[in-house]
Design a protein around this nucleic acid. Sequence first.
RNA 1: GUGGGUAUAGCUCAGUUGGUUAGAGCACCAGAUUGUGGCUCUGGGGGUCGUGGGUUCGAGUCCCAUUACCCACCCCA
Length: 418
Amino acid sequence: MLTTRPRGTSDIIPGEVEVWQYLEREIRRICREYGYSEIRTPIFEHTELFLRGVGDTTDIVEKEMYTFIDRGERSITLRPEGTASAVRAYLEDKLYAGPHPVKLYYIGPMFRYDRPQAGRFRQFHQFGVEVFGSHDPSVDAEVMAMAMDFYSRLGLKDLALHINSVGCPTCRPALRQKLQEFFRPRLGDLCPNCRERFEKNPLRIIDCKEGRCREAGAGAPTTIDCLCSDCSSHFEAVKKHLDLISLPYQVDSCLVRGLDYYTHTAFEIMAKDIGAQSSIGGGGRYNKLVETCNGPPTPGIGYALGMERIILAMKNQRCPVPGISGPDVFVVTAGKAAASEAFRLLFKIRGAGISADKDYQDRSLKAQMKYAGKNGAKFVVIIGDEELAQGTVLIRDMSAKEQVGISSDQVVGYLLDQ
RNA sequence: GUGGGUAUAGCUCAGUUGGUUAGAGCACCAGAUUGUGGCUCUGGGGGUCGUGGGUUCGAGUCCCAUUACCCACCCCA
């Protein structure tokens, strides 16, 4: 072997690809039902899009981006997430000029330079949705509901929806100040990481998973304590809408997502039993992001899930995946002379829209039958010297274990009737 | 970026205190049945034991290094 696949990437091979195709089918179906249209954006973008969009103090931007200089000396980055590109396209392709809200979805690979572990890869796949142009809290609820609906369609259970409000530029400064006042005397108790966050983004301290920071943060002011009246009433309305459709959730005032663009609503869906990387999807509102990208003031909300993690959860919970069927017909030959006729017949059968295959390994009749059986062929068409001489073939129904002889020009018609 | 674990056939794994020619199951191929699949039986192919050093009369086994993978921290989907 010349080389292996790069670290943190994977091949999706036959036998595994079927669950991906199933997921993609279900994604397209639910998106159509909820009124989302697909958008496909480039896999790489100008680096500045993510610096501005995702936020240059985030871990993603600081240490996880695949950034390189192209031959035209432009700084290019393999997209680490989908929202920034969607916002860029919303502006660049002037989607803001059309009717609102604009509801988009995407499926595709994302890239983050992390140490791989269970449920975490350097190239991974996200399905995400974005809604531009509505402040309505019912949209927040609908995005969460759609996510939960999607999981339940796949048969996933035991998921927890955590929600929070992270405030807006009106209430952030007050929260920031309160947090700094609270943590200033406890700075020594915090992890080195959080000591840096103290200046840059004190909000993140209450979201830190380190034991010492959790202890130091006990009793710290929460985002919810400091919400301005707009944020507060929006959050109450979101919860009301979730209640209206009886969607269970838990308020987690420590939930602060790692992307800078979130305002108001933030949420995350957690799964047990998929390892330490238990977040199976997350999102939130980003009412200032379009402006940050030099667009007109436009509210937005989005959500994304990691497809690898979904598949992991589905495996662990033994969720059924629709089976893949073998070819409808397998053409088997006995004797060299029959091969030409079999090849001609194979294409006639395929020409009628029936899936059909044959042996390519010069195997014995018995081995061909075995191969056909293993591949799940529904019917086997058998041609040997005798059939060739008589202008007939045998058609064997594999599950019924019965076979009939018919004239070779009636084969397609016979198969179509089955 | 930090820590722990693992590496033997295509896959899952045995391999004792270092000791003859490194095994099993599954998978693959063939035969039993010279024209008929799933079951059974028999046989076969396939391994520089991750890589590079070292210790030893002798290393899959012990030591060192290295790489890859897995898991966790962190971060996130």
